[in-house]
Computed example of a mutant assay.
Amino acid sequence: MKILVGSLVGGAALVGSTAALLPLAMMTSMGVSDVALAPVSSCTVDASGLTVDDLDTEQLKNAATIIGVAVSLKVPPRGQAIAIATAMQESGLRNLAYGDRDSLGLFQQRPSQGWGSPSEVRDPARAASAFFGGPASPVKNGGLLSVKGWQDMELWEAAQAVQRSGFPTAYAKWEGLANDVVTKLSGATSTCEPLAVGSWTLPISTGYTLTSGFGSRVHPITGEVRFHAGLDMAAPTGTPVRAAAAGEVTWAGVVSGYGNLVRIRHAGNIETYYGHLSAFVVRAGQQVQAGDLIGKVGSTGNSTGPHLHFEVRHNGEPTNPDPFLREKGLKP
């Protein structure tokens, strides 16, 4: 059984690999960063022949995903066991489409409490990343890595600090199984692909203001709370918009909501989106380099004023552009 575990969140690759997320020596010049990237974008974990008592294939797959995320974030085995025990108690290590009130997924995270949209909390890799938290967290809720002294707590205490369950000590009964899962899966073979390499640059170099970040927000037009999949960079109409990295333009046209949109596919299954443009100067199939002019700031589509809506996606899933770019030495 080969399990692809990985979904890039905040520049930290969510993978089942023994490769650690190493500190990067970052150098920037004129908004462009050339960084030898240590993280990987995704890994295929070969769990063939591995068995864990009392776990079926579905549960083992979800456990492998959680551990892959943990390894990419440099969470030690103790933290991995806490996450596995938590998921066992909350969902039986199953990606549930139901739960108490609006609770969903492996960790029974609640969209109404800031854990993400219903589809996001049912993404096992993203849910695991949110549980662990830390700088790469896709949510603002505090995760395990934000709990002071979690390494020295009883397993149930650490889990409860994140989950805030009505039955805090219930996590303790899964500690033995969780330790067994971590021990067995830590020996699984993994094959990893490198994250997109080369120069990266901010899509707008200067003269912009960040007006909206990644995550849940009150939509400026509808007034509803919705998930915002990128960064909004307000700038005067006509401000140059540049490719964030080398790649191939896969779309240059009108998309509902985005208005005039350019999409660029980069190495490592990374895509960048540039929305609300007043004009674009590239076409689908065109190769571009980091810093190449691709369009100009505008206010097309669902927009309240001139700005660039910038997204980063990995395997089609939105990831927070802010820490992703900071990982490359760039500060949006």
Score class of each variant (00 low, 15 high):
residue 1 M to G: 07
residue 5 V to N: 07
residue 7 S to D: 14
residue 8 L to I: 14
residue 14 L to D: 14
residue 17 S to L: 03
residue 17 S to R: 05
residue 21 L to M: 00
residue 22 L to R: 12
residue 24 L to K: 00
residue 27 M to Q: 13
residue 27 M to D: 07
residue 29 S to E: 12
residue 30 M to N: 15
residue 33 S to H: 06
residue 33 S to Q: 11
residue 49 G to T: 03
residue 53 D to T: 05
residue 56 D to W: 04
residue 60 L to V: 06
residue 63 A to R: 06
residue 65 T to E: 15
residue 66 I to A: 05
residue 67 I to K: 03
residue 69 V to D: 05
residue 71 V to N: 01
residue 72 S to Y: 00
residue 75 V to M: 01
residue 77 P to R: 13
residue 79 G to P: 06
residue 81 A to W: 01
residue 84 I to D: 00
residue 85 A to K: 00
residue 86 T to F: 09
residue 89 Q to H: 10
residue 92 G to W: 02
residue 96 L to D: 00
residue 101 R to Y: 06
residue 102 D to H: 12
residue 109 Q to G: 05
residue 112 S to P: 15
residue 112 S to L: 04
residue 113 Q to P: 03
residue 114 G to F: 13
residue 119 S to P: 00
residue 125 A to N: 12
residue 139 V to T: 15
residue 141 N to S: 08
residue 142 G to E: 12
residue 147 V to N: 04
residue 156 W to K: 01
residue 158 A to Y: 01
residue 158 A to D: 06
residue 159 A to Y: 09
residue 161 A to W: 07
residue 162 V to G: 08
residue 165 S to I: 01
residue 174 W to N: 13
residue 174 W to A: 11
residue 177 L to Y: 01
residue 182 V to Q: 03
residue 185 L to D: 05
residue 188 A to H: 13
residue 192 C to S: 13
residue 195 L to V: 14
residue 195 L to I: 14
residue 200 W to H: 09
residue 202 L to E: 09
residue 205 S to A: 14
residue 209 T to I: 11
residue 209 T to Y: 06
residue 210 L to R: 12
residue 210 L to N: 11
residue 213 G to M: 04
residue 218 V to Y: 07
residue 222 T to Q: 08
residue 224 E to H: 03
residue 225 V to P: 09
residue 226 R to Q: 10
residue 230 G to R: 04
residue 230 G to A: 08
residue 232 D to L: 08
residue 241 V to K: 02
residue 242 R to H: 12
residue 245 A to N: 04
residue 247 G to M: 08
residue 248 E to P: 00
residue 254 V to G: 02
residue 261 L to R: 11
residue 261 L to S: 07
residue 265 R to V: 06
residue 269 N to H: 13
residue 269 N to A: 13
residue 271 E to G: 02
residue 274 Y to S: 12
residue 275 G to H: 02
residue 276 H to F: 07
residue 276 H to Y: 01
residue 276 H to R: 07
residue 277 L to G: 09
residue 279 A to Y: 04
residue 280 F to T: 07
residue 285 G to M: 12
residue 296 K to I: 00
residue 296 K to T: 14
residue 299 S to P: 02
residue 299 S to V: 04
residue 305 G to Y: 09
residue 306 P to G: 09
residue 311 E to A: 12
residue 312 V to I: 13
residue 320 N to C: 08
residue 321 P to E: 10
residue 324 F to T: 12
residue 325 L to T: 04
residue 327 E to N: 09
residue 330 L to N: 01
residue 331 K to V: 09
